[in-house]
């Protein structure tokens, strides 16, 4: 991925103070300096409640930093409004747990962005949604509402909804959280395909940022890593830097989970 390093930054944070979604007065991360180039795959790790989700919400332009700067595709997120809707639609966001619309079926959830933003004819929307749901193996659950699906399929439906507008940047908040082994394996493989350029999306490599509380499953020599600890965002770099990191958080996030038996 070295050829992509000279492209303009997709996400650029400079001295950004990250506030919490539920309490904007609370600072969860101080002074974030971070640059994500096009085509990169970033893994941001941190313990629970370390501010991973809030950081990702800032990166997606859904919250603006209390101070400092956050630019996405060169556009300051403080200025995100109706005029910058094109920039916003270049970002796909997959929330932890999916955050699907509970009143709509899975197919309606996936179709909504396409119908709202593109105002596409119903037949075309139905075709695109059907293809995407086939790709993500969601077709049998098209008419189910989110409450009737397991967390595994809800997460996959959320991914389909984020991908339906074919974003260039995909942000995933703890995507493996609550998934069983089979779904974890599928998702890791699928994200790898998106990163290297999935044929469904015209072979165009996607920029990915994921958050996690377990670094081991994301091990890859070409990915980049950052760690959140004690309100500090630290860019570690490649995997070998992660392994040699001495911080308690990095060690903990690399450690085997503690076995619990009754």
């Amino acid at each position: 991925m070295s050829e992509t390093t000279f492209q303009p930054a997709v996400i650029e944070m400079s001295a950004a103070r990250i506030g919490a979604l539920r309490d904007t007065l609370l600072t969860v991360i101080e002074g974030v300096n971070w640059s994500v180039a096009s085509g990169e795959f970033w893994v941001v790790a941190g313990r629970q409640h370390s501010g991973k989700s809030d950081l990702l919400l800032h990166a997606g332009g859904l919250i603006t930093p209390a101070s400092g700067s956050c630019r996405v595709f060169g556009c300051e997120t403080k200025n995100f409004g109706e005029a910058q809707i094109a920039e916003r639609l270049r970002i796909g966001f997959v929330f932890a747990g999916g955050n699907l619309f509970n009143q709509l079926t899975i197919a309606e959830n996936v179709a909504l962005p396409l119908r709202y933003q593109r105002n596409a004819p119903l037949a075309e929307v139905a075709r695109v949604v059907e293809e995407l749901m086939e790709l993500l193996e969601l077709a049998p659950y098209a008419d189910n509402t989110p409450a009737n699906l397991s967390a595994n399929w809800r997460q996959r439906a959320a991914l389909a909804r984020a991908l339906v507008l074919q974003p260039e940047l995909l942000l995933l908040d703890n995507p493996l959280g609550g998934l069983d082994g089979r779904h974890r394996h599928w998702l890791l493989k699928f994200l790898e395909q998106l990163w290297s350029g999935h044929k469904y999306f015209g072979g165009r490599p996607m920029t990915l940022v994921v958050t996690t509380d377990d670094l081991r499953v994301w091990r890859h020599p070409q990915r980049k890593y950052a760690v959140l600890e004690e309100k500090i965002f630290s860019v570690l770099g490649a995997w070998r830097e992660v392994e040699s990191a001495r911080t308690p958080a990095a060690k903990e996030l690399l450690a085997e989970p503690v076995e619990t038996t009754i």
Binding site: L21, F93, N99, L112, Y116, Q117, L165
Partner: peptide, 8 residues
């Protein structure tokens, strides 16, 4: 938040 993420 999900609506806003979709530009709605």
């Amino acid at each position: 938040e999900a609506l806003e993420a979709l530009g709605i």
